[in-house]
């Protein structure tokens, strides 16, 4: 089985802050990591490869330093990494990103299965996985919570939604997005780490990928961010109660009675 896992390098979001002057995201000095949801996609790729044999390729689109994230994935057990990098690819929205990744998957050749994380913690869209499926014309199973059976040519999967779950069978090739529930990601071994330093990362740009220049980057993106701002700090008059517990409770009752006509 030839598997591609899509991994994205993201800023550690708990540290994200906004420059008060420019109102833009401060990227300098912010740590970067593999998108947490992608670690489950990677682990699933490793598990399937261990079971069925074949090759596991990790694929990322991003700046040169995203190589580090690919090496981290190789340290965990991926065979090789492919980075899609080039100036014209920058500024892509989910439509263009999923197009570019799908071109990468075509060029990797003979891929049976693509696994993505549920969503990336920076953009938070959960649209790239389905976008890849649509560009490739393959079926998708999103929000996979359990691999019930995995054969060479088809998978039986459980998927979660808010109000329940379903069970489906999908023939390969297919695209999956996985939830945290599927596995517990492993930590790289020392041997894995050493090995990951030696492996060459393949880098492809827009010409290698033969992308349609109308469909990539800012110009090829249907959506455009027109402005950004900080979330509203709700400017309101807060009543502060700081007496004893019983006083506060009684005071609260009074407020609720008048304000909410309870």
């Amino acid at each position: 089985m030839k598997i591609v896992v899509c991994v994205k390098q993201v800023p550690g979001t708990t540290e994200v802050s906004i420059d008060p002057e420019t109102k833009r995201l401060i990227r300098e000095g912010v740590s970067i990591e593999m998108n947490p949801f992608d670690t489950y996609a990677l682990e699933q790729g490793i598990l399937l490869k261990e079971k069925h044999g074949g090759e596991l390729v990790v694929l990322s689109m991003g700046p040169k330093r995203a190589e580090l994230t690919l090496r981290e994935a190789i340290a965990c057990g991926a065979d090789r990494g492919v980075l899609l990098n080039g100036r014209p690819l920058g500024g892509s929205d989910t439509y263009a990103t999923s197009y570019i990744l799908s071109q990468g998957i075509k060029k990797i050749k003979d891929v049976n299965l693509v696994i993505c994380g549920k969503q990336a913690v920076d953009g938070d869209t959960a649209q790239v996985g389905p976008g890849i499926a649509a560009h490739l014309g393959w079926p998708q199973v999103t929000y996979v919570s359990k691999f019930i059976e995995s054969g060479e040519s088809e998978l039986k999967l459980e998927r979660m939604h808010e109000s329940g779950s379903d069970v489906s069978v999908v023939e390969l090739p297919a695209v999956l997005t996985v939830l945290k529930d599927v596995n517990i990601p492993r930590i790289p071994t020392l041997k894995g780490r050493l090995n990951s330093r030696k492996v060459d990362i393949t880098i492809w740009d827009e010409t290698d990928l033969e992308t349609d220049s109308e469909k990539i980057g800012l110009g090829g993106s249907p959506t455009r961010v027109v402005s950004t701002r900080k979330p509203d700090a709700r400017d309101k008059h807060t009543i502060v109660l700081k007496g004893s517990a019983s006083d506060s409770a009684r005071e609260l009752m009074k407020i609720l009675k008048t304000r909410l006509e309870l």
């Binding site: 989910t94 439509y95 938070d124 959960a126 649209q127 998708q140 999103t142 929000y143 808010e162 959506t223």
Partner: peptide, 23 residues
């Protein structure tokens, strides 16, 4: 933006070749 909406809309948007804003 339920799990079904978030699965279907991005598929449809790409098939239609248009943009989609999430959530």
């Amino acid at each position: 933006a339920t799990s079904k909406g978030r699965s279907l809309m991005p598929l449809v948007a790409v098939k239609l070749e248009t943009g989609l804003t999430a959530d």
